[in-house]
Design a protein around this nucleic acid. Structure first.
Length: 437
RNA sequence: UGACGGGUAACUCAGUUGGUCAGAGUGCCGGCCUGUUAAGCCGGACGCCGCGGGUUCAAAUCCCGCCCCGUCAGCCA
């Protein structure tokens, strides 16, 4: 079928083309109808003049929002158009004249829009956000594929928890055991890294936390690279390169979408040239305590605790670029982290905090290599050793220093877009209290 | 799970010392306008005021219970 896309119209000036799409909005005056047509690649104004064809004019005038239409017309440049061109309509085929489309060009509330998420994703802003998501995902895959990583996806049904049992969704199906939806592919990544050297998994993960904040989803997507013969600094190097690569790609490929979102791109541009600061947990604690002394923080942070959302925001605001915090107290981290040789109470973990208060977008570190240490850890964390025998095998047969991290796609996308809530960065968000549509 | 805010037309909201109090705008329908950009102007239809109970001559408004949503926090990533 002959079809031209709206983002190609500039190459067809003066020619007659056929556009296929949906009516985004329309306006009419006595002798003119303006049809805003969208086709997924953009929106263009199509002009119907009564004097040219009265039947066509009446047809165009009667169309409801989101009617599916095929429009034929001549491409003309016009300074009044936001994309520089518009269409002089010569033909109109109506596949369906829709009426009473629920989402109007005016404001709506969150609940209503979420209930209509299947339609909401057609609107300009949501469309732009999801295109940025696409580019974040594509850039991420390209980055790893082009840097010697092998994609090796990990299971979604798992027999045991990665880091504890309280946050898991239980699935009642398998005969032998209870199964759970995965919260991370990390443990399996350690196995694939020992096969491929460098590997990554990319898929959905599930957390049964009762969190309802703008940074949390019940089901979200995470990319997790793992490298054999790698240590903590390698994790930070890789994370920094990845974030810069994604940022450059988004700036380059999604200019129009960032403009739709009114994103201040200067902040993103600055990131690509910056060196990401790396601060020790001790140093981060000092920053927070100084902040309290200055009256900029409500609570005086005590060494040993995990950062809350306000703490992360405060730390990240002290820097222009994303900042790594490393060497956390082991007690607040998962059982599999390698310990600092000189201060064994510290885990070799690193979190990357995004600027502008978007929170942790990368979390990872160096994994423990000693089987004796891990056996002790399993006991201390009350985890069933039998379930982890395969994991311990990785230390029995060719244990090497290895390290990796996870990046949350939605948080990264929210930050790129400069939007408030991660729920808009995934086509159909699953949250506490949100299962439909 | 807690604190705070909220639930009135399809949508976004106004309206609570209890009494012409069922309101506006948007959308929809009809009319006018060759250049609109969330178009404008004129007219029209649209309601069990979240649910249940109570107080009262009288409740959207006061009281009790419940449900739902949002923001933040906690938990987490």
């Amino acid at each position: 079928m002959n079809q031209t896309y709206i983002n190609e119209l500039k190459d067809h000036i003066g020619r007659e083309v056929t556009l296929k799409g949906w009516l985004y909005n329309s306006r009419s005056s006595g002798k003119l109808v303006f049809l805003q047509l969208r086709d997924g690649t953009g929106i263009v104004q199509c002009v119907v003049f009564k004097g040219n064809n009265e039947e066509l004019f009446e047809n165009a005038k009667s169309l409801g929002q989101e009617s599916s239409i095929i429009v034929t017309g001549t491409v003309k440049t016009d300074d009044r158009s936001s994309i520089g061109v518009e269409l002089d309509v010569t033909g109109l085929e109506v596949l369906q004249n829709a009426s009473e489309y629920p989402i109007t060009p005016k404001e709506h509330g969150t609940e209503f829009l979420m209930d209509n998420r299947h339609l909401w994703i057609r609107s300009k802003k949501q469309n732009a956000v999801l295109k940025v998501r696409h580019t974040v995902v594509k850039a991420t895959r390209d980055f790893f594929d082009d840097n010697g990583f092998i994609l090796a996806d990990t299971p979604i049904f798992t027999p045991a928890a990665c880091e504890g049992t309280t946050t898991l969704f239980e699935v009642d199906y398998f005969d032998d055991d209870k199964a759970y939806l995965t919260q991370s592919g990390q443990l399996y990544n350690e196995a694939t890294a020992a096969s491929f050297g460098r590997s990554y998994c990319f898929g959905p993960v599930f957390r049964a936390e009762k969190s309802k904040t703008r940074r949390h989803l019940t089901e979200f997507w995470m990319v997790e690279p793992e490298m054999a013969y790698a240590q903590l600094p390698d994790v930070m190097d890789l994370g920094e390169k990845l974030i810069k690569f994604i940022t450059e790609r988004v700036l380059n490929d999604r200019k129009e979408d960032l403009a739709v979102l009114e994103r201040d791109v200067s902040i993103l541009q600055a990131i690509t040239a910056a060196k990401f600061p790396r601060i020790h947990y001790d140093e981060a604690v000092k920053l927070l305590q100084k902040g309290f002394a200055k009256g900029e923080m409500d609570n005086n942070f005590e060494w040993g605790g995990d950062f809350g959302a306000p703490d992360e925001t405060y730390i990240s605001k002290q820097f222009d670029a994303p900042v790594f915090v490393h060497h956390f107290p082991a007690i607040i981290k998962a059982f599999y982290f390698e310990r600092d040789a000189e201060r064994p109470e510290l885990a070799l973990g690193a979190d990357l905090l995004a600027p502008e208060g978007y929170g942790e977008i990368i979390g990872g570190g160096e994994r423990a290599t000693s089987i004796e240490f891990l056996e002790k850890q399993l006991i201390e964390h009350n985890l069933p050793k039998e379930s982890f025998e395969w994991y311990l095998d990785l230390r029995r047969y060719g244990s090497v220093p290895h390290a990796g991290f996870g990046m949350g796609v939605e948080r990264a996308t929210a930050w790129m877009c400069g939007i408030e809530h991660v729920r808009e960065t995934i086509p159909f968000p699953r949250m506490l209290n949100r299962l439909k549509p």
